[in-house]
Design a protein around this nucleic acid. Structure first.
Lengths: 216, 216
DNA sequence: GTCTATATCCCGATAGAC
DNA sequence: GTCTATCGGGATATAGAC
């Protein structure tokens, strides 16, 4: 008897969902890279072989966690957007929400961008990611409608990269710790997006801004 | 007999340096996450206990790799900057170099931003990072001299976040694979930095765009 | 669908000889 | 500074019973 009902009581009903929950817990406590199927089983009080009835292997469980993470990200980010505001404000709000999500759901965010699963093996991950990219694209396309020479794709990526970069630097500790650091990072990301949009002529198609030399 | 002299010659002279080299090799092949001291020893044809004569533990070796990675980053990035050009061009060139380094030295870049060592235990890491931050700061301060109301710190962080974000999205596959993807990402990062600088009034102190009290 | 049991393998770290 | 040997632990995955 491997100490059943150890710190946690055991399940009955939906081991699959319980495994996903527990995986998120463990990732929060010990990081993605130290997550193990065996420990998740132990915590749930089931045999280490039980997960294999629901997931082909460790990566398959992590893929399910990734899908849930994207769903949570979308559900967290999109409803908070200021309705009927101009696209620039919406993009700034998305950047702010992006950074906040990275902090408030750190384990999920780590799964999204650190786990490095084989995307060819798990196409459901790309599908779950799609609504997020579409939301960025929609705002930028709204801008491009007012400004047809804008290279919308490039700008959308730049906005996402800006939000992502601030989120990573925050999680890396560059803004300090605690709620104040989160808001500081979120504010700066939002302002960086506004600056990016103010200077968006750098993203015009057929720009006459000279390409930069290759420093070799 | 653990198959000595296996696939690789063995050292003599500088096991410490050889371990760092081999660690970088292994990280490139299998990711930081799956790197092990034991495998590095095996590859060098030394006993698994040999590394402990040079490093207190696994993290200490990874810390040495991190220091080398920062040194390589600085050595790669700074000499290529266009001399005597205006700060905006320099920052765009830094962003371009940042993205290129992430691609051309992927294992080192992964060590820098994924390994998550205890920075309090290894203060030499912060010291090795310093020249990089200083280079960003110097460019932004040059801009702020022309424009004293600029919130230089915030802008420096935003530039770094922009470069970092593009690098991460590139490594995540969002720009596709191959050298063309690298240049595409580098170009976009450079243009995003230029856009950021063009719109930098969003980073002015006492700005009425953002209701953010001035920290300094 | 879950359990018991087991096979196989790898890892970090230490002790003591040379 | 390196080797031999070993301790103690943990992981993934499979086989077969219920």
């Amino acid at each position: 008897m491997p100490t059943p009902g150890q710190g946690r009581r055991y399940h009955h009903g939906d081991l699959r969902a319980a495994l996903i929950d527990t995986a998120i817990e463990l990732i929060g406590e010990r990081g993605v890279r130290n997550f193990s199927l065996a420990e998740a089983s132990r915590r749930l009080g089931v045999a280490v072989s039980a997960p294999y009835a629901h997931f082909a292997d460790r990566d398959a469980l992590l893929a399910a966690v990734t899908v849930r993470a994207f769903n949570a990200f979308v559900a967290d980010l999109l409803p908070g957007l200021p309705p009927d505001s101009d696209p620039a404000e919406q993009l700034a709000a998305m950047a702010r929400g992006y950074v906040r999500f990275a902090a408030s759901h750190r384990p999920l965010f780590e799964v999204l961008y650190q786990v490095g699963l084989d995307k060819a093996r798990f196409p459901e991950i790309a599908a779950a990611e799609q609504p997020l990219d579409e939301a960025f694209d929609a705002c930028v396309i709204a801008l491009a409608d007012e400004d047809p020479a804008l290279a919308a794709d490039d700008l959308a990526t730049a906005v996402e990269a800006t939000a992502h970069g601030h989120a990573m630097l925050l999680l890396d500790g560059d803004f300090g710790q605690g709620p104040a650091a989160v808001e500081e990072a979120a504010d700066r990301a939002a302002r960086a997006v506004l600056a990016l949009l103010l200077g968006r002529q750098a993203f015009r198609k057929s720009s006459d801004i000279a390409p930069q030399p290759d420093p070799g």
